[in-house]
Design a protein around this nucleic acid. Structure first.
Lengths: 207, 207
DNA sequence: ATCAAACCGTACTGTACGGTACGATTTTCT
DNA sequence: AGAAAATCGTACCGTACAGTACGGTTTGAT
């Protein structure tokens, strides 16, 4: 059962690429078959229906991509500002990557299909929970104002995405921003967040 | 030319409702014809193609809805906090209405179709520009820290949408939040924004 | 060696849909 | 009234696509 899994994976890879590039409705099973090589019977041997194949592609993509975002959050509250800046940069690189934007667009477009939207949302939530945990530690140690840490994590995400996510999803930019611009957005977002959640009695933290 | 426009409007209304509820691909011209009554020839008399009808629906929806959001921003910087709170509430009610969420989902899903995504994004931008103008006045009068007003407007929008937009787009909530919850979100977002953009020398503005 | 699973190619079915044709009828404008 | 535009009903065309059928071939495990 080695070639079996290899073929299955090849189908997943090709289908993933086509679904992201063209969308669900504009990608036919025959096209996937042609590009992956082989026969449509083999495809239906591995996946009972087009919908099942789509969901399999998306769940795999979610798991794979979210792992990358979580890795960049070192839970060391000692140099909070630096940690947040690094996290902000890598999170923004993550969510604004062309793959991730394409995944998100498919999730929104086909949200109702087999609850794939909720699946994606739950995964995103796990990132938020990790961030909330870190922020909670910062609040406990007086580095941040005490407040609902989940709310704070949501606000941080909102600030990080504020400049970039919408135009990318709507394909409203001719030239996508490069890494330096994204890092600038992350810097500005984290700076705003630190001001918003600074302890009440500290006003000399920022130059 | 009275019944002509009436029929055209009836087609638009029905198509708008079906497109939002079912999406572009899952809505057939025959279904629109059946629900609006009459003949498919009449439909094609008013709209040359399915795509043209879709774009007509979306542009109409955009114009109509954006007007509502802009109305709630009184440009009086004297009671800035109150103005922002009221704007935040109505903006959030606006973007989280079921119609607007459905429109946005279609925009994302069909962003590449005839550049309808960019069309939508530009309209949203006009709201942001108005807000930026207001914030700029607040900065000039010392009520807010001096900074890029467009950035500040983006951050405000990011904070407002942070708790609610994503789960709605992904249809990840069983029960959508009611007006009171939305107002709470707006309050929290505006409070965070005011802290983030408070003048450097004011630390007693918030209780 | 053998058996079962996986694979291939090709052709096929049924259906759904965008768009057209066409002739008849109604409404609107002047 | 009478021309022009809009509307109607129904049938139709071409096509694209999800899924199936089927007979033959390769591959892997025991």
């Amino acid at each position: 059962m080695k070639k079996g899994n290899a073929k299955r994976q090849a189908i997943l890879d090709t289908a993933y690429r086509l679904f992201l590039a063209q969308g669900y409705d504009n990608t036919s099973m025959s096209e996937i078959t042609t590009q992956v090589g082989g026969s449509k019977a083999t495809l239906y041997h591995h996946f009972a229906s087009k919908e099942e194949l789509f969901v399999a592609c998306m769940t795999a993509a979610i798991d794979q991509h979210v792992a990358g975002a979580l890795a960049s959050l070192s839970t060391d509250p000692d140099d909070m500002a630096m940690t947040l800046r690094r996290f902000g940069e890598s999170f923004l690189q993550f969510v604004s990557s062309s793959d991730m934007v394409a995944v998100r667009r498919q999730m929104v477009a086909e949200a109702s299909r087999l609850g794939v939207g909720k699946l994606f949302f739950d995964k995103i939530q796990t990132i938020g929970n990790e961030v909330a945990l870190f922020l909670s530690a910062c609040m406990a140690s007086g580095k941040l104002r005490r407040d609902d840490s989940v709310l704070a994590a949501n606000h941080l995400r909102g600030l990080l995405e504020a400049e970039i996510l919408e135009p990318l999803l709507l394909q409203a930019l001719e030239t996508p921003p490069d890494d330096a611009e994204k890092n600038g957005m992350a810097q500005r977002a984290v700076a705003a967040f630190l001001r918003a959640y600074a302890p009440d009695d500290s006003r000399t933290l920022f130059e």
